[in-house]
C-alpha cells in the first residue's frame, strides 16, 4: 500500500508529494464523525475545517506519513493549530502563503515550496531530486490539459453526467494518484451525444464543492454546469507554467498564485479582480447565469460577494448566491432556489 501524505488546501502542489514517493491524500470534509471540532476550536468556524478536524479526532483517516498545511486563511491556520492536539504524532509542515501577488511574494513562496519539497523527500528518506519533481510536474500538466479539454467540451454542450464524471477524475488526483486520474481523463474526452433541451447554462463558483453527487443534483434541477471554479475543481488542477521560469519552485509559486486563485489571494494592482475574473469565466463558458456557493463563515468569500454581485449586475448576468456547509443535506435545501433560478433563466 502506498504511503500517504494528507493535505487540505488547493495551494498544495501535488507533484511535490508524488515526486517524494508519496500518494496525495486530500482530506475531504465528508465523514459521519460526530461534530466535536467546535469544542477544540469554535462552533462558528468554516465547516470545511471543522469536518476535516472531526475526521482527525474520530480517527476517520487512513494511515498518514505526514500532513501538509497551508496558511491560506484564518480557519486553515486554526486547523493546523488543532491538528497538534488531535493527532500529536503526525509530522506536520505548515507553509506560509503570501496574500498578495508580487515579485517579492513569489520569491518567498518559491522558498516555501522548496522547503516543503525538501521536507517531503526527507520524510520518505529519499534523496532530493529536482528531476523527479520536474517529471511529476510534466505529468500534472498533462492532467491539467486533459481537464481543460473536458471543461471546454462542457462549456459548449450539455452532456448528462459529464460534470460529476469530471469531479471523480479530480477527486482521484486529490486522493489517489495523478496517473490514475490521467487515465480516467483520457478515457472521458470523447463524450456521448449532447442533450440539447431542458437545461440552463450556468457557471458555478465558490470555495469548495467536491461531491460528484452535487453535480448530478444540479442536473436534476435543470442546471447545465458550463464551468466551475472551486478549490476542488479547476483551482485544484492548476497547470504549472514551466516555460517562463527555469526554477521549478518559482514556476510553481507563480502558477499557483496567479491561475484562478482563491478569494484569499489578491492582485493589489487590480483590487476586486476576482469579480472580473468570474464575469470573464461566466462569459467564456457561455453561461447565462452564475451560481455562487460558499461555505458559511468563509471570510475571504463573504467579503467579496458584494463586489462580485455588483460586477455581474453591471453585465446583466443573473446571479444566485447560496450558502451552506459541506453536507449533501445543505445542498438539498437549495433545491427551490436553484430551480427557481433556472425557471427564471429559461432553457
Amino acid at each position: 500500500m502506498s504511503k500517504k501524505i494528507g493535505f487540505t488546501c488547493a495551494y498544495t502542489p501535488v507533484p511535490l508529494i508524488e515526486a517524494a514517493g508519496f500518494s496525495p491524500f486530500r482530506i475531504f470534509p465528508e465523514s459521519k464523525a460526530p461534530d466535536q471540532a467546535g469544542h477544540l476550536l469554535h462552533d462558528n468556524l468554516c465547516p470545511h475545517v471543522k469536518k476535516v478536524l472531526d475526521r482527525a479526532l474520530e480517527d476517520d483517516l487512513p494511515e498518514l506519513e505526514g500532513m501538509v498545511f497551508i496558511n491560506s486563511c484564518d480557519s486553515m491556520r486554526r486547523l493546523a493549530d488543532a491538528w497538534h492536539e488531535a493527532r500529536p504524532d503526525d509530522p506536520i509542515v505548515l507553509l506560509d502563503l503570501p496574500s498578495g501577488i508580487n515579485s517579492l511574494s513569489l520569491d518567498f513562496l518559491s522558498k516555501e515550496y522548496k522547503r516543503l519539497a525538501k521536507i517531503l523527500f526527507k520524510w520518505n528518506s529519499e534523496p532530493f531530486s529536482i528531476k523527479k519533481i520536474k517529471n511529476e510536474v510534466a505529468k500534472w500538466n498533462l492532467l491539467a490539459a486533459s481537464v481543460k479539454k473536458i471543461e471546454d467540451t462542457m462549456s459548449k454542450d450539455f452532456f448528462p453526467g459529464y460534470a460529476s464524471g469530471l469531479q471523480q477524475i479530480i477527486n482521484t488526483a486529490a486522493t489517489d494518484s495523478t496517473d490514475k486520474a490521467l487515465l480516467m481523463a483520457q478515457n472521458k474526452i470523447d463524450p456521448e451525444k449532447p442533450v440539447k433541451d431542458g437545461q440552463s447554462p450556468v457557471f458555478v463558483f465558490g470555495n469548495l464543492l467536491f461531491d460528484p453527487k452535487v453535480y448530478d443534483l444540479f442536473e436534476e434541477w435543470n442546471v447545465h454546469v458550463t464551468a466551475s471554479d472551486f478549490c476542488t475543481t479547476s483551482r485544484f488542477v492548476t497547470p504549472v507554467d514551466t516555460a517562463t521560469d527555469d526554477n521549478i519552485f518559482r514556476a510553481l509559486a507563480s502558477s499557483y498564485m496567479e491561475q484562478t486563485p482563491c478569494a484569499r489571494t489578491m492582485d493589489t494592482a487590480k483590487p476586486g479582480d476576482i469579480a472580473q475574473k468570474i464575469v470573464q469565466r461566466a462569459k467564456e463558458s457561455n453561461a447565462r447565469g452564475v451560481i455562487g456557493f460558499t461555505l458559511k463563515f468563509c471570510d475571504p468569500y463573504l467579503a467579496r460577494i458584494p463586489m462580485i454581485r455588483q460586477a455581474l449586475q453591471k453585465e446583466s448576468i443573473p446571479f444566485l448566491m447560496l450558502e451552506g456547509d459541506c453536507t449533501m443535506g445543505s445542498m438539498g435545501q437549495q433545491q427551490t432556489r436553484i430551480e427557481a433560478f433556472t425557471e427564471m433563466l429559461g432553457v
Binding site: P98, M266, P271, D299, P300
Partner: peptide, 29 residues
C-alpha cells in the same frame, strides 16, 4: 495580512470602492 484574513479582505474592498492604490504588507506568521 495579519492579524486576520477578514480585515485584509476589507482593505481590498476599500481599494476597490475608492479606486485608490493599494499596497499590501504580507506579514509572515
Amino acid at each position: 495580512s495579519s492579524p486576520c484574513t477578514a480585515g485584509l479582505a476589507v482593505m481590498e474592498n476599500f481599494a476597490h470602492q475608492y479606486k485608490k492604490d493599494f499596497f499590501l504588507l504580507n506579514v509572515p506568521q
